[in-house]
Simulated scan of single mutants.
Amino acid sequence: MTQHSLRRLSPVLVCLAMLIPSLGSAQGCVAIRHFSSCTGTHPENNILAKGGLMLSANYRYFKSFRHFRGTEEEPDRVANETEVINHSHAWDFVATYGISDRWFASLVIPTVINTRSSLYEHGRDQRNTTFSRGLADIRWNVGYWLQDPASLPKGNVAIALGMKLPTGNYQATDIFYNVGPEGGPEVRPVDQSIQVGDGGFGVTAEIQFYRELSPSLFLYGGGFYLFNPRETNGVRTFRETLSPILQNEAVMSVPDQYSVRLGLSHPFSPAITGSLGARFDGVPVKDVIGGSGGFRRPGNVLAIDPGLTYTSGPFALSLSVPVAVRRERPQSLTDLETQEATGQPRAGDAAFADYVINVAVAYRFGGSGVKLDPEKQDPFNR
């Protein structure tokens, strides 16, 4: 790969970097909250020379309202106006620093604003809305390129490990109507899906890659997993007040989360790059480490993920809109426990969005250019 090839590749790498903010953001009340990794699905944004710095701000929004049990939608919920509606807004402020040409570190400071409108949480006769906002769970990680970027490989892989800190409020409360003493209002914790934090220390693991397939076509992909060892956070759900069989869901779980992405990117011009891929995000039924008790809504979303990025020098602006093509809410452990205890089928539901809107801006500061291996440079551009 020549220096000219690197210039052609640069907007593609920025595009891939800019499309990462929504990693781990399940489309609805399956995921506890928005969640993004530090390095993202495309670690090319971390091709920074020693001392290089990239700052970015990422905004995400979705509206979840379509209810699923398993992979089957329940359209009557919308038709009868009994659906739960979540509006979720998230802003991530991200800093990535080049420790060396191959080592990098990232810090994500997330903030959220969420609303949740429902009937069943307010006595079933009157729709009301609960609200949460604030600083969410801060994440950081350290990553490493397996190949030296200075040698201009046609592809590369980065691995990263990090931590999630319980900085977000996992005990956010609001007023719930028609459910208190004598049918009056009562202050309770908001639903798990709009809690700002989860109350646990977590460990994050990521693997990400890109590969040049042709001078104008690039393959990208990667995977991310959040390990949450804590089983429950002690916050009451009040679900046992809805039915005695929900006693095992009286306290919130602290679940793992994951995301996988794969796609193709194509530069239309030196400034405009497009991408098209698929992503699979979710919350598992069981955690890899620690217990899996308490209330959670496991689920997953398969989405088609188109994106577009504009770059101008050190500045980049991107838009991506993952559109769900398959949504699943499998039986949780508490569903299975209740089914075994009662002898009756039990499968909880969850609300999902049709799409997620992701917008990101980024700026690279001095020192972001990797010093190239002289043998790999085009001699006419030396």
Rank of each mutant, 00 (worst) to 15 (best):
V179Y: 09
L308Y: 06
G168W: 03
S318G: 13
S106K: 01
L219N: 02
I99Q: 09
G52K: 02
Q126G: 05
G282Q: 04
T334P: 00
M18H: 04
L146H: 08
P298L: 05
S25N: 10
R33I: 03
T338A: 10
P322W: 00
P185T: 14
H87W: 07
K286S: 14
P215Q: 06
Q147T: 12
S5T: 11
T338D: 07
T311N: 04
I357D: 01
P322I: 01
P149I: 10
A324V: 08
D349H: 11
P185F: 09
P189V: 08
F315D: 00
R236K: 14
P255H: 02
P306A: 10
D305F: 06
R69G: 11
L107D: 11
A79Y: 06
R127L: 08
D373N: 15
G70M: 15
W145A: 12
A303Q: 05
C15V: 03
A341T: 06
Y97T: 08
P322L: 02
V361H: 01
V187D: 14
L16Q: 12
I159S: 05
N114P: 00
N169L: 10
S106F: 01
G134I: 06
N156F: 02
T39P: 01
E74I: 15
Y355R: 06
T82I: 13
P255I: 06
A362F: 05
E249M: 14
G343C: 03
S10Y: 13
L246V: 08
G293W: 12
R102T: 11
G369V: 14
A158H: 02
G274D: 02
A95G: 08
R296C: 03
L333H: 06
K63I: 10
H67W: 03
F365G: 03
R60L: 09
F352H: 13
G168C: 06
R329Q: 15
R230K: 15
F65L: 12
M18R: 03
P322V: 03
L217Y: 09
P21T: 02
F93K: 00
D256E: 12
A341S: 15
L308N: 02
N248I: 14
S292E: 13
G307W: 00
